[in-house]
Design a protein around this nucleic acid. Structure first.
Lengths: 154, 154
DNA sequence: GTTGAAATTAGCCACCC
DNA sequence: GGGTGGCTAATTTCAAC
């Protein structure tokens, strides 16, 4: 998996992370390439898997998701089966946007969004009572999002 | 800000979160709408600000970002100026993808990505030594990403 | 809300240097 | 690796329903 990305590719990736609706024409102008040359670059980046997909970014607040939490979860057992059971269960909870297996004291960190307090209580109950092998839960509420990059540093 | 979103809009938003490159034609077919009617819906969703933008999602691993951390930061002071100074400084660090002001014991939680150990050490030094008013830092490394939704539950 | 058509733009491909 | 040109398909706007 030796990927050779040059400065032009990086510029294209940066531009597409900001706005994937730019046409190959204007993308090409931004890097000093013709539309077709730029098109070939993009296809290559897609085929190499560097570009995983193109997604619409929605406004969480306007969709009613006003609360965000980082939830630390500790399991009663760190056995293979315990981890698998927890991970499978977590996939089915739509409010859980991210789940990471962690090094250190907490087994998992979850990033979740909620519409309101009731929503969070339901989620909290579901995590602590209905998920397999959960020993402890510690919820940290985000008061305000200071920074939220949508993409990676390229 | 009373937004009226019906079931058709939700379906469109769901589809666009998965793949924003679908044509208005196929999007319309998915919800039982003509292309032009579907197009009007999309424009309305954009103008309402429900759709913030369209972005390319890149593969972190293939770009060399193999490490991910959640870093808890405590400040020496929680004064207005201390928070502002920290938040301004954090904006300039590209590896910091997210920064949240938190309720509870930690003042901030940062989600950061790194290419390697050196990269992380540099970042750690920069956070603890060069950022204003930092009292303590606790880094939690993600061993594996179990779940990573790109969008919101719509 | 729909259809259909027109004008514009973008994506794509074969062929060239 | 690069560019030109042309065909096809998509977007976008519009009139009329």
């Amino acid at each position: 998996m030796t990927l050779q990305i040059d400065a032009v590719d990086r510029k294209l990736l940066r531009a597409l992370q900001e706005d994937s609706r730019k046409s190959v024409q204007v993308l090409g102008e931004g890097v000093g390439l013709s539309a077709s040359a730029c098109h070939r670059r993009l296809k290559a980046l897609e085929e190499q898997g560097l570009i995983e997909g193109y997604r619409a970014v929605l406004n969480a607040g306007k969709l009613g998701y006003s609360m965000q939490f980082f939830i630390e979860v500790g399991l009663t057992s760190q056995s293979e089966t315990a981890l698998e059971a927890f991970e499978t269960a977590v996939q089915d909870i739509p409010e859980v946007l991210e789940c990471h297996l962690m090094a250190g004291q907490s087994d998992y960190i979850l990033r979740v969004v909620c519409q309101d307090h009731d929503d969070f209580e339901r989620l909290h109950r579901r995590l602590s009572a209905r998920l397999p092998g959960v020993a402890r839960i510690h919820s940290n509420m985000s008061i305000r999002t200071v920074k939220a990059r949508t993409g990676l540093p390229v």
